[in-house]
């Protein structure tokens, strides 16, 4: 046990001048982490592993608006939680920083995409894992390209969670909208079709050309019925295998409409017939077993439709559970003897 390190944040607040309730931060950041400007040198010297990026961008949506408010809601919901996880006996404190929101020009989507791309590249350049919270799903196009360019000739894997295939080659002539996300990402030069996974597809917001294009490119997607018929965990395990097999970097892209509408009402395009939260929690642990991930994004959170913080809390729990389970996989469990200092010996 390192006596120089303070463990106070693992425990209930101790009172006194610094004894604020944990829900009253000075600055609203992801899990009360430190704000660090988006600069590779600053990020590098922070010593953190993850950098949070908000992307309040809503100009790639073709359906309901509202995901612009996603990053703020995600940060708010994260105030309800601690960095300590009793289920894994790990502590995420100090492992992440918050780089604020990528500034959005408004009515200039091309500029916005460029800024998202540059922000993600900057984080990757510093050697941190970006946690990107949107924003509509078109942001994944810019962010995945940033990872692809960052790793150069190395290979990447990509995991798409969602109820929709998002394989629109173009939508009303536009090629970088949310429904085009997977179509654009599967064109990246160092992403082989065999390293792409998609789970949760269902219902009829999946026009025929999306299915056709997926087949044409050899993209294997596991529909919701397939998950239910063949067992969620065995099918997901195979999907995870595809993403991590022979790849140097892995991109996890979550649209929580992969969940049943009851488990995540606060997303732009809810769909019935999806996953339950306990299933997603297990999947988060299964992913962490692979010991590494390069980028995590969460898109399409829409607080205007949320109920009692359901979707935002789920999103926070999934992302932080992956982080916590990864920490355990890396053997970063904290010393079992650590106790509240004021209680030791009492």
């Amino acid at each position: 046990m390192n006596p120089a390190k303070s463990y106070a944040h693992l425990f209930s607040p101790l009172g006194g001048d610094a004894g604020d309730n944990y829900r009253a931060p000075n600055v609203l950041t992801f899990l009360r982490s430190t704000y660090v400007a988006l600069n590779a040198e600053a990020l590098k010297s922070s010593g953190a592993r993850y950098a949070f990026l908000g992307v309040p961008f809503d100009e790639g949506n073709i359906g309901k608006p509202g995901s612009e408010e996603g990053p703020r809601e995600f940060r708010l919901a994260s105030q309800e939680y601690f960095s300590y996880w009793f289920e894994y006996n790990v502590d995420l404190h100090g492992t992440m920083v918050d780089c604020g929101d990528v500034s959005m020009p408004k009515v200039s989507p091309e500029v916005a995409r460029e800024r998202i791309y540059r922000a993600v590249r900057e984080v990757l350049k510093a050697g941190l894992v970006p946690i990107i919270v949107g924003g509509d799903r078109s942001m994944s196009i810019a962010a995945a390209k940033a990872l692809s360019d960052h790793i150069g000739s190395k290979k990447m894997g990509y995991f798409h969670f969602g109820a929709h295939l998002d394989m629109s080659d173009s939508w009303a002539g536009e090629r970088n909208l949310a429904p085009c996300a997977l179509a654009r990402i599967t064109e990246l030069p160092n992403l082989a079709p065999g390293n792409v996974a998609h789970i949760g597809a269902r219902n009829s917001m999946n026009p025929k050309d999306w299915i056709d294009l997926a087949k044409q490119r050899g993209i294997r997607f596991n529909s919701m019925f397939e998950l239910l018929d063949n067992g969620i965990y065995p099918v997901v395990e195979k999907a995870i295998d595809r993403v991590w097999k022979g790849t140097d970097a892995q991109y996890l892209s979550f649209n929580f409409n992969v969940m049943d509408a009851s488990a995540a009402p606060g997303v732009t395009s809810t769909e019935p017939g999806g996953l339950e939260s306990r299933e997603m929690m297990r999947i988060a642990e299964m992913i962490a077993k692979r010991k590494q991930v390069s980028v995590i994004d969460v898109s399409e959170l829409c607080p205007a439709f949320d109920v009692s913080g359901t979707a935002a809390r789920l999103a926070v729990c999934v992302v932080t559970r992956i982080m916590a389970a990864l920490a355990k996989e890396r053997g970063e469990e904290i010393d079992a003897r650590i106790r509240r200092s004021d209680l030791v010996g009492s």
Binding site: Y7, L10, F11, S12, F82, S83, W85, I338, L343
Partner: peptide, 11 residues
Amino acid sequence: RNSLNPKDWYD
């Protein structure tokens, strides 16, 4: 479940 469970509670 989940991480609104500071360590002294589990201890």
